[in-house]
């Protein structure tokens, strides 16, 4: 029986619109800011009417920022490239290591299995600041400071637990009989893993990979401490806009827009996977 009255429907519509507005407004505002000069951003009262300019984007792409105090060198494009490189490689490494591990945890009961899995997850609980000091010391003595390899290694703290736990839940949801059937049909366990388990858990793997990508992309602290300008991602690179002659709001906005675009596009593209992956796998695990 359907009890929804017209009033309820209208109310629901209004509330939903408000929520959307609340969450979308900052993004919309940033987008507007990115097409304005610092002056028009800072004028009082603020207005949505202005003459659009591409200067902010041009400055980012060419790497040359002109301020009232003179011209400044920027390596935003390098930062963007670093973000792409670090996030993609970290997720790739985490998938290669994490998916087989998740399968092992899901399918084989071995001594200390649960404990190891939980320890790995607990890395997610620890605040990064807690491990930063010892890490930076290790990195110094190992010569890993300011290297991509070092950062990718540390990023595993973010990616690996995520992938392990989401994908494990997915593997556990698969009926072992399907894999048994494949083994009996004449395939080795590795072929079964490759041709049955992985394809069937693919939505979960995709969701976990995507989430891990977003978390790596948004990470700030590790790269701030463990790398210098030429290896830093956009999150850290954006600090460069806080200059001696003031904060370059227009360029910050443009930088945000450019750095959000990859994750935004990815998230839109894989929205279905994300929701499914999170609700199906992780909750059960």
């Amino acid at each position: 029986m359907d009890h929804t009255s017209t009033f309820e429907r209208i109310l629901r519509g209004i509330l939903l619109a408000l929520v959307v507005l609340f969450f979308m407004f900052p993004i919309f505002w940033i987008l507007l800011m990115s097409f304005q000069t610092n002056e028009s951003i800072l004028r009082m009262p603020p207005s949505v009417f202005f003459t659009p300019t591409f200067d902010n984007y041009i400055a980012l792409v060419t790497g040359e920022m002109r301020t009232a105090a003179g011209s400044l060198q920027l390596n935003f494009m390098q930062n963007l490239w670093n973000s792409v490189l670090l996030s993609t490689t970290s997720v790739a490494v985490a998938l290669v290591l994490g998916v087989p591990a998740a399968y092992a945890f899901a399918r084989f009961k071995f001594r200390l299995g649960e404990d190891i899995a939980f320890t790995l997850l607990s890395f997610r609980f620890a605040p990064p600041l807690l491990v930063l000091l010892p890490l930076s010391l290790y990195f110094k003595s190992l010569g890993l400071t300011n290297t991509y390899i070092g950062l990718i290694w540390v990023y595993q703290l973010i990616c690996l637990p995520l992938i392990l736990w989401i994908v494990r839940g997915y593997f556990e949801d698969l009926s072992p009989d399907i894999e048994h059937a494949h083994r009996i049909a004449g395939y080795s366990w590795f072929q079964t893993f490759r041709k049955i388990a992985v394809p069937l858990a693919l939505p979960g793997i995709a969701a976990a990979g995507l989430l891990a990508f977003i978390f790596s992309w948004n990470n700030f602290v590790f790269a701030l401490v463990l790398a210098s300008a030429d290896k830093q991602p956009v999150t850290v690179g954006a600090l460069a806009f806080v200059t001696a002659s003031g904060i370059q709001y227009g360029q910050i906005a443009a930088a945000i827009v450019m750095s959000v675009i990859p994750t935004f596009v990815l998230a839109m593209f894989a929205q279905r996977y994300l929701v499914e992956g999170l609700s199906l796998g992780a909750v059960k695990g």
Binding site: S175, D177, I178, H180, A181, H182, R183, I184, A185, G186, Y187, S188, W189, I196, P199, L200
Partner: peptide, 29 residues
């Protein structure tokens, strides 16, 4: 190991490979 025993098995819950056609399921052995 099971793949070298030359047995065929049918399961109560069928255990078909969901991402393969009926033809590929049957062809797998």
């Amino acid at each position: 190991p099971p793949e070298q025993r030359n047995v065929g098995m049918a399961f109560q819950n069928f255990a078909l490979f969901p991402h393969m056609s009926a033809r590929e399921n049957i062809a797998s052995p």
